[in-house]
Computed example of a mutant assay.
Amino acid sequence: MNKTINILKEGPITTIKLNRPDQLNAMDVELLTELNDELQKIKKDDSKILVLTGEGKAFSAGGDMKTMLQESDPEGFQKVMGIIKNIVITVYSMPKVTISALNGAAAGLGLSVALAADYVIAKEDAKVAMNFIGIGLIPDGGGHFFMEQRLGAVKAKQTIWEGKMMTAKEAQSIGLVDFTADQLDLALSHYLNKLQQSPLQSMITTKLIINNKQLPQLEEVLNQETQGQAKMRQTHDHKEGIDAFLNKREPQFIGE
């Protein structure tokens, strides 16, 4: 068991639980590093199904605000973005069927990572938001790629620009979430049982054929997100968004 993530292995199923419940599983450097390290190991093991979920009341509230403020130097920023890139590419290209089980809120980077999975299922009262815009940033963690895949280009842009917090049902209605359930554990257990009675090798081979074709595009998007995010972090609007967030007030953006 790690400090910031918990790993459970049951037969062909590996479950990763993000484990910073008091911080709504916000992704700091330690969690991102441990998650990346474990994913590299899991990628090579003999499990056939990977579940990503969170401890406590949230899947992940996104990037940890303290980490964002601390990683102000270009070298530290590039290191963190490199770890995020590895996580997303590994989940997306994982030779297993992957499921993100949203036990609660999935926002910002948390949602980007969740969308890297083959299936996204959510508790009905979970909240979902691609809300980088609220602090003057752009999606990272492949958010642009996954939103476009699921929503189409025009709707992806509009949804990112709006940054709206949606219910899981609303997210399902536009295609960001595949299934919702009142009792997530029961729904997940039912689906895992169904998968274990399926020809998983066939499913995984299909996944790899489709996802490997798209992988260069995902890598390019991740690179562009890193460049774009570095620029956004220097803007007046980002600094205003951070100050407004920390002081619990509405930001006053000026487009600069």
Results as ranks from 00 to 15, higher is better:
179 F>Y: 13
175 G>L: 12
161 W>V: 04
228 G>Q: 05
204 I>D: 10
196 Q>K: 09
167 T>R: 03
189 S>E: 14
173 S>F: 00
143 G>R: 08
224 Q>C: 01
198 S>F: 06
150 R>M: 13
214 Q>T: 05
159 T>W: 00
146 F>H: 03
136 G>Y: 00
228 G>Y: 05
199 P>A: 08
193 N>L: 07
168 A>S: 14
157 K>T: 11
209 I>M: 08
169 K>W: 00
168 A>Y: 00
194 K>A: 08
176 L>I: 14
184 L>P: 07
145 F>H: 10
233 R>A: 13
185 D>T: 14
176 L>H: 02
187 A>I: 05
142 G>Q: 09
189 S>Q: 14
146 F>R: 02
193 N>R: 08
174 I>W: 02
145 F>Q: 06
234 Q>S: 12
224 Q>A: 08
159 T>Y: 00
143 G>Y: 03
202 S>Q: 11
157 K>Q: 11
149 Q>Y: 03
235 T>A: 13
217 Q>A: 15
202 S>Y: 04
229 Q>F: 15
191 Y>F: 15
165 M>R: 05
224 Q>E: 13
221 V>A: 05
154 V>W: 05
188 L>V: 09
220 E>C: 04
155 K>T: 08
166 M>V: 00
228 G>N: 05
233 R>V: 09
152 G>N: 15
189 S>C: 06
201 Q>F: 06
230 A>M: 14
186 L>K: 14
236 H>D: 10
162 E>G: 03
179 F>G: 03
205 T>W: 07
135 I>V: 15
211 N>R: 15
222 L>N: 03
230 A>V: 07
149 Q>K: 11
149 Q>D: 07
214 Q>M: 13
154 V>C: 02
213 K>P: 02
194 K>S: 05
163 G>C: 14
190 H>M: 09
208 L>T: 12
208 L>Y: 09
220 E>N: 12
180 T>V: 13
177 V>Q: 05
200 L>F: 01
218 L>A: 07
164 K>Q: 06
139 P>A: 07
223 N>Y: 07
191 Y>A: 09
229 Q>E: 08
171 A>S: 11
151 L>Y: 11
139 P>H: 09
151 L>I: 11
232 M>N: 00
200 L>I: 00
166 M>R: 01
164 K>F: 01
137 L>C: 01
155 K>P: 01
210 I>W: 00
195 L>N: 02
221 V>Q: 08
147 M>W: 02
228 G>C: 03
223 N>V: 06
211 N>G: 06
215 L>N: 05
158 Q>A: 05
153 A>Q: 14
141 G>E: 04
200 L>P: 00
232 M>K: 02
190 H>C: 03
231 K>E: 11
170 E>K: 01
236 H>C: 00
208 L>I: 14
174 I>T: 09
137 L>F: 00
198 S>C: 04
156 A>E: 04
135 I>S: 10
135 I>T: 11
226 T>H: 09
